Structures are given as C-alpha cells and as structure tokens.
Amino acid sequence: MSRSASRTLALVILAAVLACAVSGGLAAWRFHHKNPQAPVVRLDEYVVMGWVGWDSSWYMRIAEEGYSFTPGEQSSVAFFPLYPLAIRAVEALGPDVYQAGVLVTLLCGPLAILLFLRWARFRAEEPLAFQASLLLALYPFTFFLYGVMYSDALFLLLVVGAFLLLEKGHLGLAVLLGAVATAARPVAPAVVLGLLARRLEWKRERGERWTVLDFLPVLSALGFLLYMLYLDKQFGAPFAFAEAQAGWGQEPGWRSVLKLSWFKTVFFSHANAETVSRLCLHALLTLGALVLVGPTFRKLGWGYGVYCAVLVGIPAVTTKDFMGMGRYLISAFPLFLTLALLLRDHPRVRQGILAVGAVSLVLLSAAFGLDHYIS
C-alpha cells in the first residue's frame, strides 16, 4: 500500500504541476499580449512568466544585488536569505535568475509533499496519511509549491524534513535542518518551540527521562539569529526585517490586532468585489486553521499543536487584513493531517474539498499569471 500511495500521490502532484503550468502560462500569454508593444518571447518563457510576479521581484533583486534597507519604506530585508541564496546557486549553473527561482520551487515543492506523506505515516495509519497528503497537494494555495518564485516550497521541505528526522530519532540532523529552515522565513519561534515540544513529548512517549541533549532544538534558531547578526552588522538594525513591514502598512499595534483595515475595506469602503472576496477568503481560511489548532493538540500531540498555534498565530495577529494567510497556512502542515483525521467518517465531504481544491488550484494559477494579487 505504501508504494502504491506514493506513486499515486506523485501522479497527482505531476498532474497538478502540469495543470498549474498550463493555466499560469496561458494567463501570462494573455496578460503579456494586452500590451501591443510587448516583445515576442518563446513559448516556454510564458510558463516562467506565469510563475513570476509580485514578491518574485524582491527575490530577484536580492539574488542579483544583495540587500538594501530604508527605514519606514518597503525594503528587501523583509525577505529572509535562504531562498535568494538557493536561486543564486542554481543561477550559477546557467539559468537566468527567474528560471533559477522557478526551478528551486519546482524541485522543493513536490518533494516536500512526498516527504509529508512519509511524515504523516508516523502519526496515522496509511490511508489517512495518504488522504492528508492529497488535501495538502490540492489545497488551493499549494500552487505556490508548483513553480511560483516564492520561498514557501523551500521552507516547507526543510521543516517537514526536520520533524520527520525528529520522529525517526535523529535529533542532531533535525536541529540542523530546523536551523536552515529558520533562515528561510521569519517563523523561528514556531520551528524552535515545535521541535522542542515534540522532542520532549517523544521522549515521554518512550518512557525515557529528559536530558540536556533533548533541549538541542533551541539551536534551531541559529538561522534566524545569523540573519539578525547580518542585519545588525550591515545596517545597524537587527530587526530590520520587522521594521521594513511598515513599508507595506503592516505596523504592529492594536489596529493590526483588531483588523481594523479588514473591516474598513470589507464593510465601509467602495472596494471592488475581487478585493472584498480575496480578503474574506483569507480571513475564512485563517479562522478554519485556528479552529483546527485545538484538535491538532488532541490528535497529534503538543509538539505539533504548539508548532501550528505559533505559526498560524503570529501572522494572524500581526497582519492588518489577513492578506497572505492562505499561503502562510501551507507551512502549518500538521493541520492537513488533523483535517484528514476529522474527516475520517465523512468521505463525501473530503471528496468535495479535494474537488474544490483542484479547481481552485487551476483558477488561482491563472489569476496569478494574469498578475492579480493572490497572496
């Protein structure tokens, strides 16, 4: 069953990648040809164009020019360094910077989902692990793992790998992978606390006493800390990545906590239907994720509960209008197994979710290729 499930999942991922590539590429062609002055490009380049947009330009700039920081303005320091470094490494092999970014995501995203299946087998029986993998593979915003020049695929691969190694008892390697992961996205508290809580829980499940070595997961923060040291040395501002958020109107404070911007846009402005529906979608997904955190504690244990609570909670509190949450939730991978466990006796509901997710993957890929702001 395990080999059959892996093959089936691989085929589903391949189909999803191809569908997203076609929809995104066709949409990029349509967007490109709105401009009669647009230069002619090769057919294969439209696929890359369909996967490059919005934050991709920041990663391109970092890979090509390095970091810059202007207090109070949008600055590249808001984006963590691991993904641009990976792009630069692949670019050295011959592809241009955009092709390199797409290749990094294409390599990491599908591999992360296959690795998720292996991890899920440690926490549930085979059929449920497979169902959870399908829920992740066909989650609407998972198209960001199928080629989009964003860092989510790389981070997910690393963090799933870290927890998988932890389940296998390879503490040192898990901590190492966790440390690399915290250099990819600003969610170090979730990774560190999640790995630490799971390690202590893992030892307790085996009836073993804790030792000093069991607290090694705190070293997973090294990737995050090294980036802070770099920012301090380069710009004299170790928290420049957080300060730069002001450039996007994401200042910390009660306005963000209370989501006043969200309420204003949705209920009291003349925003168009696309903007309102987009903000409502991200808000609903955030609410759904928060609802799943409680069952995750009960069904998967404190380690994964803590990881999801912190990973979902930080952006849910700090974002001004929930924008981007749909994509951020991909990294809360245990929630997909929790959902599969809750839907164990509701196959039709699960099938409906998968069908909606598959259609949404294609539609969101097309929207991204058309340069709509998705997440």
Score class of each variant (00 low, 15 high):
M1N: 13
S4A: 14
L9K: 00
L11M: 10
V12F: 00
V12W: 01
L18C: 10
G25T: 08
H32T: 12
K34P: 11
K34V: 15
P36A: 13
A38Y: 00
P39C: 15
D44Q: 14
D44Y: 03
Y46N: 08
G53V: 05
D55N: 10
W58C: 12
W58V: 14
M60V: 15
M60Y: 12
M60K: 13
I62Y: 01
E65D: 13
E65P: 03
G66V: 09
S68F: 04
G72D: 12
A89I: 10
E91D: 11
E91N: 06
G94N: 01
Q99A: 14
A100R: 01
G101C: 05
G101W: 01
V102Y: 00
L107A: 11
A112V: 02
L115C: 11
L115M: 12
R118I: 10
W119M: 12
R123M: 12
P127V: 11
A129V: 03
A129S: 08
F130C: 05
Q131G: 14
S133E: 06
L134V: 03
L135H: 06
L135A: 10
A137K: 03
Y139P: 03
P140I: 05
F143K: 07
Y146R: 08
Y146M: 12
G147I: 02
M149T: 09
M149W: 02
D152L: 01
L157V: 02
A162G: 03
A162S: 11
L165I: 14
G169H: 06
H170D: 15
H170T: 14
A183V: 01
R185D: 10
P186S: 07
A188L: 01
P189H: 02
W202E: 11
E208S: 06
R209P: 08
W210C: 13
L213F: 10
D214S: 06
L216N: 12
L222H: 04
L226S: 07
M228W: 03
L229R: 09
L229I: 11
L231H: 00
K233H: 15
F235C: 14
G236R: 08
F239D: 15
A244Q: 05
A246P: 10
G247C: 09
G253H: 02
K259Q: 12
L260N: 13
N272C: 06
A273N: 13
S277D: 14
L284W: 06
T286G: 00
G288Y: 02
A289E: 07
L292D: 11
V293R: 02
V293H: 00
R298S: 14
K299F: 09
L300S: 05
G301C: 07
V306L: 07
V310M: 08
V312T: 13
V312H: 02
I314G: 04
G326H: 02
S331H: 07
A332T: 09
F333V: 12
R344P: 07
H346Q: 13
R348I: 12
G352C: 07
G352Q: 08
I353M: 05
I353N: 05
A355K: 04
V359W: 00
L361P: 01
L364C: 01
D371V: 13
